[in-house]
């Protein structure tokens, strides 16, 4: 590798700006899809708790689809497929207002919601029956028992898995590049093609991704510790 010069990238105003834009877009996509995924996962959990076999099957089908179809294909189905079904006016508006990023957020969010909801479900199932009985015996309604006894424990139990899947979600933001979103990986490829400094560009992107992954995992560890059930196994 000749002339390894990291500073050529970082200090160059144009490349630096591209990198920052890329990082910002990555964070926006990650944050947007995380919020969508979490919200939807909670909705799915509530739907799953309803005593209806159709609800159970529907959520099961949703999870099965999103876990068996590759994420890139889901992204393509949304961006190329579903967008073509939308009314023309909407399509026009979307292509002017950063539609790719929006579709990326929707596709990634819906996909991770399936994983998050499975994590929450496992968290729920790990709670012994005696907890519900004790809450009902004290006079709590079903909702009250859920809210004050069951769900707080379920969420705490689910935190490690949720953190792992959050890291996956963050990494999946790079897939948006395939539909033209100018996130970090895209920016790095642009820099590479303009400056031929492949190694340095890739190194920066790798460090950024690693850094954020570590950040998310540490946040998760801190959360886990802070809200862990004191003394629990």
């Amino acid at each position: 590798m000749k002339n390894f010069d990291l500073m050529a990238i970082l200090l160059n105003a144009e490349f630096g700006a591209m990198l920052l834009k890329g990082v910002r877009m990555t964070l926006q996509i990650a944050a947007g899809s995380w919020l969508l995924a979490m919200t939807l996962a909670l909705v799915l959990l509530i739907v799953r708790l309803m005593p209806s076999r159709i609800a159970e099957r529907a959520v099961g089908a949703y999870v099965s689809y999103h876990r068996n179809v590759p994420t890139l294909v889901q992204l393509m189905l949304w961006y190329f497929g579903i967008s073509s079904l939308l009314p023309d006016a909407l399509q026009g508006w979307l292509s002017e207002h950063n539609g790719e990023a929006l579709f990326a957020i929707v596709a990634l969010g819906l996909c991770q919601a399936a994983y998050f909801s499975e994590d929450l479900r496992s968290g729920l199932r790990s709670i012994p029956d005696g907890q519900t009985e004790a809450a009902r015996a004290l006079g709590h309604s079903y909702l009250s028992a859920m809210r004050y006894v069951i769900l707080p424990q379920a969420v705490r139990n689910a935190v490690p898995a949720l953190v792992n899947h959050s890291v996956s979600l963050f990494k999946n933001s790079s897939l948006a590049m395939a539909i033209g979103v100018a996130e970090l990986t895209h920016a790095v490829k642009e820099i590479e093609s303009q400056s031929f400094r492949t190694f340095e560009a890739y190194l920066v992107a790798t460090l950024v991704y690693l850094g954020f992954s570590l950040l998310i995992m540490s946040a998760g560890a801190w959360l886990s510790k802070r809200y862990s059930i004191a003394g629990a196994r």
Binding site: K171, S174, K189, Y202, Y209, S213
Partner: peptide, 17 residues
């Protein structure tokens, strides 16, 4: 840890290079 902390797309780019 590095391979697991980086998106697959980045690994592809690295290997390609």
């Amino acid at each position: 840890y590095v391979v697991r902390g980086v998106p697959l797309l980045m690994v592809i780019l690295w290997v390609y290079f």
